[in-house]
């Protein structure tokens, strides 16, 4: 293998960059595309701080060779906010003080987004399972789980509001 041109859709925008065989998706996002949200923690897939969505599914981007996902659709924490309006999950993390040092937060939020996309009404156990690959060393997890449940409720309430508006 040699250097390849990789095309990705990142947060809805087409991007192209050169990737060596050992270039991980995480390295490409951080060093070539300037997206520093995903963090390099353990660099061996154990801590989850580099979690991004690849074609909608959460992946530890430190273990994904960039050259193998040519044509993929990547979502990072930078793409969640709508202008200055944060996503439900981001806002719930702030309101519930679900962060301390902040290093795990982007990965936690992306795992939560993936969960809520496939399960809008998760139980606490389902949240625990969804973030079981994301390590936090500050909070003891309780405020994070609460914030994700809170975000799920906000999102359901908004969806119900939109349904009601549509029927009026």
């Amino acid at each position: 293998m040699s250097v390849k041109i990789v095309n990705l859709k990142v947060n809805g925008v087409d991007k192209a960059f050169m990737a060596r065989p050992e270039t991980t998706l995480l390295l490409a996002l951080r060093e070539q595309l300037g997206l520093m949200g995903a963090k390099r923690g353990c660099a061996q897939g154990a801590c989850g701080s580099c979690t991004v969505l690849l074609d909608g599914a959460p992946v530890v981007s430190c273990l994904v060779p960039a050259a193998t996902v040519d044509g993929g659709d990547v979502a990072t924490v930078e793409g969640l906010a709508d202008g200055r309006r944060l996503s439900d999950v981001q806002q719930a993390f702030i309101d519930g003080f679900a962060t301390q040092c902040g290093f795990c937060t982007p990965g936690m939020i992306m795992s939560a987004e993936a969960l809520l996309a496939r399960n809008p009404d998760p139980t606490a156990d389902e949240v625990n399972e969804a973030i079981s690959g994301n390590v936090c060393r500050c909070t003891g997890y309780a405020p994070i789980v609460s914030a994700i449940l809170d975000a799920a409720q906000r999102r359901r309430e908004r969806a119900e509001g939109a349904d009601q508006e549509a029927t009026l």
């Binding site: 353990c42 154990a46 309780a142």
Partner: peptide
Amino acid sequence: VDFSEYLMPGPGESPEQ
């Protein structure tokens, strides 16, 4: 052999406080 393999409680193993 390193901190990522070191067993610590996850979200489901945290006590109510």
